[in-house]
Lab assay of single mutants.
Amino acid sequence: KFGRVHERAEGPAKILAIGTATPFHWVDQSSYPDYYFRVTNSDHLVDLKEKFRRICNRTMISKRHMFLTEEILQKNPNLCSHNEPSFDVRQDILVSEIPKLGKEAVLMAIDEWAQPKSKITHLVFCTRSGVDMPGADYQLIKLLGLSPSVQRVMMYQQGCFAGGTMLRLAKDLAENNKGARVLVVCAESSAIGFRGPSEDHPDNLIAQALFGDGAAALIIGSDPKMGLERPIFEIVTTAQTFVPNGDCHLALHLREMGLTFHCTKDVPPTIAKNVESCLIKAFEPLGISDWNSIFWILHPGGNAIVDQVESTLGLEPNKLQATRNILREYGNLSSACVLFILDEIRKKSGREGLKTSGDGLDLGVLLSFGPGLTIETVVLR
């Protein structure tokens, strides 16, 4: 008597548009150690500064975009301390800036989509910054002038794996609601975790050397309108798992001094060791076991992770080039990073006149991972 209210779509979910945005301000990685130790009044920690310089040199990052300028840091000195309470200051900045950054990426996506924004039916927003109620999803709806009846899902504090999570959720929403057009937004800022150095917490140096700011937005829907919408990728399958006891290797915690970062040297080999089982589960039903026969979007948690995944799986050097390019130009953008790589690989395919948006290949994989050593596996066509 009370059956399904919403009719299912006929076809699989497809990515119809991609937009990205970054803050205008950026830092050069080669000179960042001098800048970082100067603005945090830590130049007296000579040995720690040299250690940080070595870490920065190993990241293979060229530059990173950041909202925090020297002027902002001078006005808010607690942000430059390692342990002073600064959460309220971070909140005041990020509750406002995260939706604005997301808006810039959304406008780029809508411009490519070339359809009225009134056709957006759902919003899925993800960030690890600016936790608030009502959330960044609500603020973004107002900034864009979208209908208050847009169906919203707000996900805070997920971390680097969440780019894949957003695709998984959007696929379910698009395929189970005929005519749905799902706006996916990942907006991230390193301002939540920026803090001064400490000899007692070397993990913090890794975070300060890796993370950048950026937002990515996608429009996802099934059954694209012929002649009006141009699909870029099809989302074939999605899956999530985590490595048992992985939280002892990688975890982040909200504290009075901001978001703290805990990471062990076992993260790269542990991820590399567990990736292939995810690939087998995803691609065995499709008859694929040659990992060089697919295109790759791999989250660059750090250069060591990229190198070890490449080595463990025997990947050809060009397979992870898009990942390395984004890491070099932006650093680790947390949940937004794989979506930047997705954009990079389709643009490169277009520039080179390849037959598909995925490096000329039919199928590919998007792998994202993060806290708890959670792994998201997304098969794309």
Rank of each mutant, 00 (worst) to 15 (best):
I375V: 10
Y35S: 07
C248V: 10
I141R: 02
I288W: 03
I288E: 01
A239E: 14
D132E: 10
E276A: 10
I55T: 12
E84H: 11
G360Y: 01
V131M: 12
I305R: 06
S31E: 15
G246W: 12
I345M: 10
L107E: 15
I15R: 03
P300L: 06
S149G: 14
T356I: 06
L279A: 02
K49A: 05
V89E: 15
T264W: 10
N245D: 14
L361R: 11
V46W: 02
F87P: 06
I305N: 07
V309Y: 01
N274M: 14
I294A: 09
L228V: 15
N303V: 07
H262T: 10
E71T: 08
P116A: 04
V309W: 04
S42C: 13
L367I: 01
D137T: 01
P268T: 12
T127R: 11
G258K: 00
L140V: 02
E10S: 07
K319W: 04
L366V: 10
N303I: 08
D247H: 15
I297L: 06
L363R: 14
K103T: 05
K14Y: 02
Y330L: 01
N76Y: 08
L107V: 11
H299Y: 07
T237W: 05
K49N: 04
R38S: 10
V275D: 07
T264M: 15
R328G: 07
A17Q: 01
A13F: 01
T127M: 03
H249A: 10
N292K: 12
R351E: 08
S30L: 07
F233Q: 02
K142G: 06
G102E: 07
T59W: 00
V124S: 01
L327F: 09
F295Q: 02
R255K: 14
S86D: 12
T40D: 02
N318S: 10
L286N: 01
L228S: 07
N41D: 10
N57F: 02
T237V: 04
R54D: 03
E352S: 10
D88V: 07
S335D: 13
G301H: 01
P134E: 14
E97R: 05
E256D: 13
A21R: 04
L250S: 15
V378C: 11
S30A: 15
R8G: 04
R128L: 11
Y138F: 10
I305W: 06
L367M: 13
A336W: 07
I141G: 04
R381E: 07
W113P: 06
A272V: 09
L373D: 15
F233M: 04
A114G: 15
Y36T: 00
V379S: 14
F283A: 02
E329W: 01
N41G: 10
G3W: 07
A304Q: 10
C248W: 05
T238H: 12
N245S: 12
S81P: 10
I280E: 06
E352A: 07
E256C: 05
D111E: 13
L339T: 10
S311R: 09
K100L: 09
L339Q: 11
E310P: 01
K14N: 12
K355R: 09
D307H: 03
N332D: 12
N57K: 12
H6I: 06
D266M: 10
F24I: 15
D307M: 13
P371R: 13
L320S: 10
V46L: 07
K348W: 00
P12G: 07
I120V: 12
P85Q: 15
H262P: 14
H65G: 07
I280K: 07
A282S: 01
H253W: 12
C263M: 14
V27A: 04
F242C: 11
L313Q: 13
F261Y: 15
G130C: 13
S368W: 02
D88K: 08
I61P: 07
E7N: 12
L123M: 07
Q240E: 12
I110W: 05
S357V: 08
P371W: 01
I271W: 12
P244W: 08
S30V: 09
S31A: 04
I345W: 05
L143E: 14
D88Q: 08
P231E: 15
D47S: 04
L101Y: 08
D247M: 05
H299S: 11
L140G: 06
T312K: 06
E97M: 07
L367K: 15
F261T: 13
D290N: 04
F233A: 07
D307Y: 06
H6Y: 06
T22Q: 09
P317H: 06
L254A: 15
G11C: 05
G370H: 14
L16S: 03
L16M: 05
K355N: 13
H253T: 10
N57H: 05
D28P: 03
A239M: 15
Q115P: 12
H6K: 10
G358E: 04
G372P: 15
L140N: 00
I235F: 01
C263N: 15
D307L: 00
G19M: 04
K142L: 07
H122G: 03
F369R: 15
Y330E: 11
V275I: 13
L123C: 05
C263E: 15
R351T: 08
E329L: 07
A105T: 09
V27C: 04
P148G: 01
L339D: 13
I294D: 15
P116M: 07
N318A: 09
P269L: 11
P231D: 05
I288M: 07
M257N: 09
G19L: 02
L146I: 07
D343G: 03
T374C: 13
Q240Y: 00
E104R: 14
L339P: 11
T20P: 09
H82Q: 00
V365T: 15
G331A: 06
V338M: 12
E310Q: 13
T59V: 14
S289T: 08
P33E: 14
W113V: 04
Q115A: 03
N245T: 04
Y32R: 07
E234Q: 05
L313D: 13
L380C: 13
P300I: 15
Y35G: 04
V95D: 08
L146R: 05
N318H: 00
G314L: 04
L250V: 11
V46R: 09
K348E: 08
V309T: 07
K103V: 10
T121R: 01
R128G: 04
G350E: 15
N57T: 09
I15L: 01
G353A: 12
A17W: 03
L107C: 13
K75E: 12
I232N: 03
A9I: 02
R328L: 07
S81N: 09
N76V: 07
D137S: 15
S81A: 10
L339S: 07
I375R: 15
L339K: 10
G360E: 02
R128A: 15
D307R: 05
N325D: 04
H262K: 14
A13H: 00
E50R: 03
H65R: 07
E84G: 13
C263P: 09
V275T: 00
T264R: 06
G364V: 00
Y330C: 06
F283Q: 09
V275C: 01
L363S: 13
